[in-house]
Every structure is written in structure tokens, then in C-alpha cells.
């Protein structure tokens, strides 16, 4: 089933690219962060595919750690969004921000 491995690497690249495009195109903070989550998922897919192809059991552990990091990041990130929402009443990423550049 080596086809699965190679196509999975390509799928991982594709999901990662869609994530990058999302970060570039989206204006809403939460959509932006969802695109980042998509990129992390793509990275997880790459890990698992490599583990599958090479027979590395430690791949599963690495994925587990990365999921933990993603969860921690999501917790803090969403708290930051809430705090920004309270301060500004919106979470758009516009050109008319106070900080620009």
C-alpha cells in the first residue's frame, strides 16, 4: 500500500497549503485560527504517514504531544480572542487597526 503513503504526503501538503491560504485570506480571527488548526492537522497526517511507512511506533507518541500542544494553544488563543472582543467589540483583522504595518 505504498500508494497510500505517497498520496498522504501530497494530501498533507495540500491541507497545509489550504491552511496557509486561509491565514492569508480570512478576515475573521476565529476563521484564521481554524486555518492554523488545519495546518497542524496536516502536519499530524505527515507524522502518521511516516510512522506507517517506516514502522516507527514513536510517531504515534509525537502526534499525541502535538495534539496536546494544539489544545493548549487553542485554549490560550481563544481566551485572547475573547479579551480582544471585550476590548474592541469585534475580532476582525482590518487595515484600519490602530497598529498597522
Amino acid at each position: 500500500m505504498q500508494e497510500i503513503f505517497v498520496s498522504n504526503l501530497v494530501l498533507s501538503a495540500l491541507l497545509f497549503t489550504i491552511g496557509i491560504l486561509g491565514v492569508m485570506w480570512k478576515r475573521n480571527a476565529i476563521s484564521l485560527f481554524m486555518s492554523v488548526e488545519l495546518m497542524l492537522n496536516a502536519a499530524n497526517l505527515a507524522f502518521v504517514s511516516f510512522a506507517y511507512q517506516m514502522g516507527l511506533l514513536s510517531g504515534g507518541i509525537l502526534v499525541l504531544f502535538i495534539m496536546t500542544v494544539a489544545a493548549a494553544e487553542a485554549g490560550v488563543g481563544l481566551a485572547i480572542f475573547i479579551s480582544m472582543f471585550r476590548a474592541k467589540r469585534h475580532i476582525r483583522v482590518d487595515e484600519h487597526d490602530m497598529l498597522h504595518g
Binding site: 500500500m1 505504498q2 506507517y52
Partner: peptide, 16 residues
């Protein structure tokens, strides 16, 4: 995708 396709072609059966 091109790099991965080209350089991963001809891999063996998965070892898992």
C-alpha cells in the same frame, strides 16, 4: 507535491 511525488516514488511496502 512535485518534490514529494518524485522523491517518494519507488518506496517499498509500508513497514508498519
Amino acid at each position: 507535491a512535485w518534490g514529494l511525488q518524485v522523491f517518494s516514488a519507488g518506496t517499498t511496502e509500508p513497514a508498519m
